[in-house]
């Protein structure tokens, strides 16, 4: 072709774009830049095969203990997204689905972990471009004086573009008792971006169930923009024990004979106490057991330690816990 690769604006060959900043042109441009990874697939397995999303979902199933309703829900969402992708390939639907979610549940039930996996799944299916997770709380969004909140919130939103914005304890954003609270401003900016830039980022709000319900009741705009509400159940004792074993295995530790039963008893005591944070409490308990194991081994200076001894948690390491002592002091806590 003899045509030059450039054109001078104002001459015969028109520039491909109108005035800079034209809204519709910007929108189509952004859409064109975001080519879905599976734009020619016509079967579910083709989409899954090209996107590798199945691998992440299987990993989620395998790695996370319990959480059956959450896993089922994520499979549903993934299925919907795959079908949407197929529909889009056939030209049936052009509108991007709303993917904002709310994760409710007690502390330590795996909300952040699932959010991380969710970001990966959405990325593999082509619904977010980069698939990173930006975890923030009220402090990162709300400013301290007039005019501070908007830039602060926008900065966080900019960082989260192309990925997932995870707002932990989102209900702190809204403080009805203080009518001049800047949290409302952050919510408004958030709502605007959630609505207008649906294909640029996905927002996940997380927190306790009852307080999130109150939050949604007082912010109907927020509630109506969130398509998926996932409730994270507490772990059953058997699941907590399984989590403990996996955590230990990850760090090359294991329960010695009798330690597993001791830990089960520990859990039975601990779950009844205040501030029990499910998997997080399990992790902390194990960290303390490792401390006790270390000081037990440390006490005997001259002994030659085997790998076996170095990697096993003895029942005494667990039974030395404060939880058992409290139970001894009050022999019948039920009454």
């Amino acid at each position: 072709m003899g045509l030059p690769m450039y054109s001078i604006p104002g001459t015969a060959a028109p520039a491909p774009e109108g005035p800079p900043g034209a809204g519709s042109a910007a929108a189509t441009g952004a859409a064109a830049a975001r080519v879905p990874p599976a734009d020619r697939a016509h079967t579910v397995s083709e989409v899954l095969g090209e996107s590798q999303a199945d691998a992440v979902i299987d990993e989620l199933d395998r790695d996370l203990v319990g959480l059956a309703p959450v896993k089922a829900r994520i499979r549903d969402i993934a299925a919907l997204l795959v079908i949407d992708r197929l529909r889009m390939n056939l030209g049936l639907e052009a509108q991007a689905p709303s993917l904002h979610m709310s994760f409710t549940g007690n502390p330590g039930t795996g909300k952040t972990t699932v959010a991380l996996r969710m970001a990966q799944i959405l990325n593999r299916l082509g619904y977010v471009r980069k698939g990173h997770l930006v975890a923030v709380t009220r402090d990162d969004l709300v400013g301290q004086y007039i005019g501070h909140t908007a830039p602060k919130t926008r900065e966080v939103l900019k960082r989260a573009m192309g990925g997932v914005l995870f707002i932990d304890e989102a209900y702190y954003l809204y403080r009805p008792e203080n009518e001049r609270d800047y949290g409302q401003e952050a919510i408004e900016i958030l709502l605007q971006v959630m609505e207008n830039q649906r294909d640029d980022l996905v927002v996940i709000l997380a927190g306790y169930k009852d307080r999130m319900d109150t939050f949604f009741r007082s912010n109907p705009g927020m509630s109506s923009r969130i398509a998926h509400h996932l409730d994270f159940p507490d772990y059953a004792p058997a699941e907590l024990l399984l989590i403990a074993e996996r955590l230990l295995a990850q760090q090359n530790y294991r329960f010695a004979a009798g330690a597993r039963e001791a830990f089960a008893e520990y859990l039975a005591q601990r779950t009844g106490q205040p501030n029990f944070a499910n998997a997080r409490s399990v992790r902390n308990a194990l960290d303390r057991a490792r401390l006790r194991q270390a000081s037990r081994l440390f006490a005997d200076r001259e002994r030659r330690l085997t790998a076996e001894e170095l990697s096993s948690i003895a029942p005494s390491d667990i039974r030395a816990s404060r939880v058992f002592q409290a139970a001894l002091a009050a022999p019948n806590p039920k009454t």
Binding site: R129, R159, M161, D200
Partner: peptide, 20 residues
């Protein structure tokens, strides 16, 4: 401010639109 720690162009573009 300069935009540090961004992952995706959409964030810069958002700011550019507001500057325009």
């Amino acid at each position: 401010m300069p935009m540090f720690e961004l992952e995706d162009a959409a964030g810069v573009l958002l700011e550019l639109q507001s500057c325009r």
